[in-house]
Design a binder for these strands. Structure first.
Length: 325
DNA sequence: AAGTCACTCAACCGCAGGACG
DNA sequence: GCGTCCTGCGGTTGAGTGACT
């Protein structure tokens, strides 16, 4: 698909805007309002692409925009939102009055990502890097090599060797980013499950929304995300069950997960093959799979995600209400 | 003082989807 | 249903700037 050029690019100015150009847009919008950006350059006397005019207005000239630096509260909100919905900057920006998606995106890429990495949190999954690396090793069968990643950065740690996120660190291996993403259900992870000092950030506490303690410390050996509902006990969603359980292998050969030295020697392709064959045979053998779903089947995984999605929606309406799924 | 590096952020690019004729 | 136009979005780029050597 794609769009035809909105203007003759050879004849339009590009690059930074001058005060004079800004003034022309402001003057035009003050009289005519926004809309029909393709005509605005001509009508406002600008040698710019309409798209460029729209961007200049929405990202810089709009009177409701803030131009000061992000507050800790705003940063906190961005991190929380990113953990829940990922890089949907426009949705996140809607939660921050006076901020544009470009602002949020830039701030994330230049500041927040680095802050998280310094704290040992993988900015993609929002999980401790050590946990991500261990999980990756379990997934890819690299568990035997260098299994002694430290949770805190040291001279030898991967965190000091690179500013990369965990999956960037894994870039040298055979697993694709997509595969990694698909196996990292980030919205169910609990960044508080870390040995890192999380100050000055205040991570999400599922029972009272904001955890305002100056530090948060607990063992990363727990691979379960504990979701506490206000009026209920904690429910544990052990995502590693899905990540590491092979529906074909006997359960007793899969019982060792994080922190263990045992890993599956199956490659991802092999796992996928097993998974597909199981799903196929399930389709033949079980007409009503919903009625008799097992805890770790493909359908149960999807069901679990949907269940948790509903659960989160019910828990955090203030945060999630406006996100258009 | 000059050169290099790292960082920031405004702006650009291309794709997707909705509206409309 | 199809094509065109417009807008929104996320990823990427590169000019400007400050820190460092």
């Amino acid at each position: 698909m794609g769009m035809p050029p909105c203007c003759d690019k050879s004849n339009v100015k590009k690059g930074l805007w001058t005060e004079e150009e800004d003034a022309k847009i402001l003057a035009y919008v003050a009289i005519h309002g926004v809309g029909n950006w393709s005509l605005i350059p001509k009508k406002a006397g600008l040698n710019r692409c309409g798209k460029s005019c729209r961007l200049r207005w929405t990202n810089y000239l709009r009177p409701d925009l803030k131009h000061d630096s992000f507050s800790p509260q705003e940063e906190e909100l961005i991190i929380q939102c990113h953990r829940v919905i990922g890089s949907r900057w426009s949705s996140i920006a809607r939660k921050l009055p006076g901020r544009t998606d470009n602002d949020v995106k830039n701030h994330w890429n230049t500041k927040l990502k680095k802050k998280l990495m310094k704290m040992g949190i993988d900015p993609v999954t929002h999980k401790p890097v050590s946990q991500v690396v261990l999980e990756f090793r379990n997934i890819s069968g690299h568990g035997h090599e260098n299994a002694s990643f430290k949770t805190e950065p040291s001279n030898n740690s991967i965190l000091t060797q690179s500013n990369s996120s965990a999956w960037e660190i894994m870039g040298n291996t055979t697993m694709s980013h997509e595969t990694y993403y698909n196996n990292s259900p980030m919205i169910f992870t609990n960044p508080a499950s870390s040995e890192f000092q999380t100050s000055p950030f205040h991570f999400y506490n599922h029972s009272n929304h904001l955890l305002n303690g100056t530090t948060s410390s607990c063992s990363s050996s727990s691979s379960s995300a504990s979701i506490t509902q206000p009026n209920q006990g904690a429910t544990n969603f052990c995502w590693n069950d899905y990540l590491l359980s092979d529906p074909v292998l006997p359960q007793n050969s899969q019982t060792q997960v994080l922190g263990s030295s045992a890993t599956s020697n199956l490659t991802f392709a092999q796992n996928e093959l097993h998974f597909n064959s199981l799903a196929e045979s399930s389709a033949h053998n079980n007409i009503d799979t919903n009625a008799s779903r097992t805890s770790h089947s493909a359908s149960s995984f999807v069901d679990e995600i949907l269940d948790k999605d509903q659960e989160m929606l019910s828990q955090f309406p203030p945060l999630l209400n406006d996100f258009d799924y």
